[in-house]
Design a protein around this nucleic acid. Structure first.
Length: 499
RNA sequence: GAGUCCGUAGCUCAGUGGUAGAGCAUUCGACUUUUAAUCGAAUGGUCGUGGGUUCGAUCCCCACCGGACUCACCA
C-alpha cells in the first residue's frame, strides 16, 4: 500500500474510533466565542502576569496545523485561516473522553478548544485546554509544514491546499479583497453608481478581442461572453447615469500567459463631462491612494524593480515613444511624419524586424512598433497617450488631428494596467468606424470590432461628452502584491482538465 | 501555434544504463511548557503514460498527457 493510502486509512480508522465514542463526527455547528484572530488581537500582546491576573476563558476553533506530543503534555497549533495560536493539551486538565478524542486527532482536522489563555515558559501565547471538541476530519494527508506546497500546478488546481499551508497565498487574496474594496470606495465617494451589465451579449463589443460563444436554448440564440462591458455602460450614460462603474469579469478567447487569463476582472467606469486628461489625474490619484490605503505606502517592490506610485505619473505620447525608440534602435532620426505615412512606417517596421500585415495602416503599424520596443520598458507608471485613431474605434479624435484619438493606456511594471479615452459620441462617425472594422473583419481580422446597430441607436439619442476607462484589477493586484504571474492573484486560474 | 525546461514516496528534494535515497509526514516506543520538539525503530515507490533501443531502462530515443518559462497571439 502506498504511503498516501496508508495515511488515508489511518485517518479513516481514527474517524471510525471517534464514531465509536458516540460523538457526532460531523457536528452541525459549533458555538465559538472568539476567533483565534480576535484572541490574538485582544490578548496576544499581554504578558504572562497580565494573563494570569485576567484569567480569560474562551471557546475557539480552527484547523490543526501541527501536533507536538509529549505523552501527557501536548501542543496543537490551530489556525482560523487568518491567525494561528497554540493549544496546550494536558491529560489531567481534560475530561477523559476529550483526551481520548485528542489522541485520535490528525494534522488537518478541525477542532474546537475551550480553555483559558496563558503564556508558556517559552513565552508562547497559548490556550490551556479544558475541553476538546471534534468538528471535522481531514481524511487526506496535507503537504508538510516546513516547505509548504511549492508545486505551482497543485497550488492552482487545489487552491485550498495552497491556502491551508501557504500564508503568503492567503495574504495575496486578502490584499486583493482590500484593493477591490478600496477602489469601490474611491468610486462611490466620487458619486459613481455601481451597476452590473450583461455578461452574455448578442454582439461582443467594446474591445478588440476574440470572444467565447455560447447558446441559449429557449431563444435558440447564440450569445457571446462579454469581452468588455463598455457599450452597455455608455448606454447607461445615455440614460442619464452620469457617473457609472462596474467591477466584473471579462472573457477573452485568447492565449494564456503570466499576464493573461481567459477570464479576468476589470473595473470599468464612465463619467460625463470628463475627458482623457481628467482621467489621467483621477487614475494616478486612485492607484496611489489605494496603494497607500492597502500597503501603507505608494512605494512598491515588483520583482527586481522599485516602483513609485506617487502621483503624478509620467506622460508620454505614443508616437513620441515609438519615434524615439525606433530612432535609437535604427541609429537615425525618425520623424513624426514617417510614422503617419503607411509605406514609410511599414518599411521602418520591417527594418525593426516586425511582420507587417498588408491590411494594417500606418496607425496600427506605429502601435505595433510601440508595443515591441517600448511596452516592457515602462516600469515606472507611465501614461502613454494619443493613440492612432485606426486602433481606437470607440475613441474620440483630437479636434486638430483626426488621425489621433484622445486615448491613453497606463503602463506599470512593463505591462498595461488601464486603458481610457474620451468617448466617441457622434453616431455618424461611430458608424463609419464600425464599417472600417468590418472591412478588417472581412479581410480575416478575427478581432475586428463588430457592427452594433443598437449601440449606434443609443448614441443617436445623445451621449454627452464623456470619458471612460477600464482598469485591469488582476494586474493591479499583481503589482501591489509583488506577484509575477496573474495566476497568483486569481484563486482558480483556468487549467486544462486532467483525465 | 513554435521553442526550451520539468514530472522520482502524501509534501520538499537528491540520484544512477545493473530493480531507488534523504528530511518532513505516517506507525510503534520514550518524554508533563514544546516551537521545523528531540531520541530510537518501522512502514511507505508502476521513478507521469505508452512504445522503442538494450542482456538489462527511472536514466538513452520516439510519441502522448500535464505543467513552467520564452516567443507568437493578445490594447
Amino acid at each position: 500500500m502506498s504511503s498516501h493510502d496508508e495515511q488515508v486509512q489511518q485517518r479513516q480508522s481514527n474517524l471510525a474510533e471517534l464514531e465509536k465514542l458516540g460523538i457526532e463526527i460531523y457536528p452541525r455547528t459549533f458555538e465559538r466565542q472568539h476567533t483565534i484572530a480576535a484572541l490574538v488581537e485582544a490578548h496576544g500582546s499581554r504578558t504572562h502576569d497580565e494573563l494570569e491576573g485576567e484569567h480569560v476563558t474562551t471557546i475557539t476553533s480552527g484547523r490543526i496545523l501541527a501536533i507536538r506530543a509529549f505523552g501527557k503534555a501536548n501542543f496543537l497549533v490551530v489556525s482560523d485561516g487568518h491567525s494561528k495560536m497554540q493549544a496546550y493539551i494536558r491529560q489531567d486538565a481534560l475530561p477523559e473522553l476529550d483526551f481520548t478524542i485528542y489522541k485520535l486527532l490528525d494534522f488537518g482536522d478541525w477542532v474546537g478548544i475551550e480553555g483559558r489563555l496563558f503564556r508558556t515558559k517559552t513565552n508562547e501565547f497559548t490556550i490551556w485546554a479544558s475541553r476538546v471538541h471534534f468538528l471535522s476530519k481531514c481524511l487526506v494527508p496535507l503537504p508538510e509544514k516546513w516547505h509548504g506546497l511549492t508545486d505551482v500546478e497543485t497550488r492552482y488546481r487545489q487552491r485550498y491546499l495552497d491556502l491551508i499551508v501557504n500564508p503568503d497565498s492567503r495574504r495575496v487574496f486578502e490584499l486583493r479583497s482590500r484593493i477591490v474594496s478600496g477602489i469601490r470606495e474611491f468610486m462611490i465617494a466620487r458619486g459613481y453608481l455601481e451597476v452590473e451589465t450583461p455578461m452574455m451579449q448578442p454582439i461582443a463589443g467594446g474591445a478588440i478581442a476574440r470572444p467565447f460563444v455560447t447558446h441559449h436554448n429557449a431563444l435558440d440564440m447564440d450569445l457571446f461572453l462579454r469581452i468588455a462591458p463598455e457599450l452597455y455602460l455608455k448606454r447607461l450614460v445615455v440614460g442619464g447615469i452620469e457617473r457609472v462603474f462596474e467591477i466584473n469579469r471579462n472573457f477573452r478567447n485568447e492565449g494564456i500567459s503570466t499576464q493573461h487569463n481567459p477570464e479576468f476582472t476589470m473595473m470599468e467606469f464612465y463619467e460625463a463631462y470628463s475627458d482623457y486628461h481628467a482621467l489621467m489625474r483621477m487614475t494616478e490619484e486612485m492607484i496611489a491612494g489605494v496603494a497607500t490605503q492597502v500597503l501603507g505606502s505608494d512605494q512598491i517592490t515588483f520583482g527586481d524593480h522599485q516602483i513609485s506610485l506617487h502621483a503624478p505619473f509620467v506622460r508620454l505620447s505614443l508616437r513620441e515613444a515609438a519615434r524615439e525608440a525606433a530612432s535609437r534602435k535604427l541609429g537615425r532620426e525618425i520623424a513624426d511624419a514617417d510614422l503617419r505615412d503607411r509605406d514609410r512606417v511599414a518599411a521602418i517596421a520591417k527594418e525593426l524586424g516586425l511582420e507587417v500585415d498588408p491590411g494594417s495602416g500606418a496607425g496600427k503599424i506605429t502601435t505595433e512598433i510601440f508595443e515591441r520596443l517600448c511596452e516592457d520598458r515602462l516600469i515606472q507608471p507611465t501614461f502613454v497617450y494619443d493613440f492612432p485613431t485606426e486602433v481606437s474605434p470607440l475613441s474620440k479624435q483630437k479636434p486638430d488631428d483626426l488621425e489621433t484619438a484622445e486615448r491613453f493606456e497606463l503602463y506599470i511594471g512593463g505591462f498595461e494596467v488601464a486603458n481610457a479615452f474620451s468617448e466617441l459620441n457622434d453616431p455618424a462617425e461611430q458608424r463609419r468606424r464600425f464599417e472600417g472594422q468590418l472591412k478588417n473583419r472581412a479581410s480575416g481580422d478575427l478581432e475586428a470590432h463588430a457592427m452594433d446597430e443598437d449601440y449606434i441607436r443609443a448614441l443617436e439619442y445623445g451621449l454627452p461628452p464623456t470619458a471612460g476607462e477600464g482598469v485591469g484589477i488582476d494586474r493591479l493586484v499583481m503589482l501591489l502584491t509583488n506577484s509575477p504571474s496573474i495566476r497568483d492573484v486569481i484563486l482558480f486560474p483556468l487549467m486544462r482538465t486532467r483525465e
